[in-house]
Simulated assay, not measured.
Amino acid sequence: METFNNNEHPHRRYNPLTDEWILVSPHRSKRPWQGQNEAVSTNALPEYDPECYLCARNQRWNGIQNDNYTDTYVFENDFAALLEDEVQDNTPQSDLFQFKPERGINKVICFSPKHNLTIPEMDLEGIQKIIETWKAEYIELGSKDFINHVQIFENKGSIMGCSNPHPHGQIWAQSSIPTQVEKTQKSLKNYYEKHQRSLLKEYVEEELRRKERIVSENEHFVVLVPFWAIWPYETLIVSKRHFGNLTQMTQKEILAFAEIIKTITVKYDNLFQTSFPYSSGIHQTPTDNEEHPEWHFHMHFYPPLLRSASVKKFMVGYEMMGEAQRDISPEKSAEILRNLSDIHYTTKAF
């Protein structure tokens, strides 16, 4: 009988954050690719686009003109998925047919007035400004009595459904705690009540001891490929100190958070020497006015690229009918990312 090798043999891994399993099939990464290849854009974007509805001073579809902003710029989404108005519903409910009205506020955050700039190409001061804006919006939206969760996220690249290349992210604040966050909260709470310790605090300490999946770290944060990662180059930023949300960060931690965001996004771009697409999002304490000692601040990055700038991972077939599956092992993808330069490939110093 062969000895198990996690870079060669199929196996399942447990995700303690969501109480789910994933199938890992590392031997499949050797198979030839004859599937779909995504178009890779080689067009250089201008610093200002008069047709872009996110650029400074430009008019949006509803006639509102953007401010002449110089760093971040926030406005309520013109095509919001959630509405703030309260509605009353008296429809009879049943076990099989349940629904309820959902209130919320959607906002757009422009990261910079420069149309052709992305986070890995920004300086640390610019990224710090984004974090400070996230913090301010978390406080403002979370203070509303009907908002119980504030989801901050970014979709980067057309492959992730981003309809405008201008550097921006979104915030969806709503009256319910969404499904993925609720799963995470349940797991964090169960672990905290059992051990009186943060699940992610203990997880990060063990990852730092093993050093198998660490991509980079600084004094306050770690970026790693999770043991249970689904996407080929998925990463997780976790604070070394146990705290729940952006409001509890020190100024040193804000700077360190900016540094670690820049580090991983630069490595992403360097991997295939392209503007690397991803969906990223912050998971932090709900704003439901309850105590949440179980929550530990973290940020997910879910990039779809698999083996080049034009080949992506699809979630189909078994993944839709059975469970999530990945080919390259998390240890191998962490090694690849770890060994990449921290200097952006477009600079002369690369």
Rank of each mutant, 00 (worst) to 15 (best):
M1I: 10
F4R: 14
N5R: 12
N5P: 06
H9E: 15
P10A: 10
P10E: 11
H11K: 09
Y14K: 01
P16I: 08
T18Q: 08
L23V: 11
L23N: 12
P26E: 01
S29M: 13
K30T: 09
N37R: 15
A39I: 11
T42K: 13
A44F: 00
Y53D: 12
C55H: 01
N62D: 15
G63Q: 15
N68M: 00
T72D: 10
F75T: 12
F75G: 14
F79L: 15
A80W: 14
D89N: 08
F99L: 03
R103Q: 15
I105V: 15
K107I: 09
I109F: 09
F111A: 11
P113S: 02
P113T: 02
N116D: 12
L117A: 02
T118I: 01
T118Q: 02
Q128K: 15
Q128I: 13
I131R: 01
A136F: 01
E140C: 02
E140Y: 01
L141G: 03
N148D: 04
N148T: 02
E154M: 11
N155A: 14
I159P: 08
G161W: 11
G169F: 08
A173H: 07
I177T: 05
T179L: 15
Q196N: 10
Y203D: 03
E205Q: 13
R213S: 02
R213M: 04
F221I: 12
F227D: 00
Y233Q: 07
L236I: 01
K240T: 04
R241P: 02
G244Q: 06
M249V: 06
I254G: 07
L255A: 11
L255V: 08
L255E: 07
E259N: 09
T265Y: 01
Q273E: 06
S275K: 07
T287Y: 10
D288E: 10
E290I: 04
F297S: 00
H298Y: 13
H300G: 04
H300N: 09
P304L: 08
L305R: 07
S308V: 05
V311D: 06
E319D: 09
R326L: 11
I328V: 13
E335C: 10
I336L: 08
L337R: 05
D342L: 08
T346P: 05
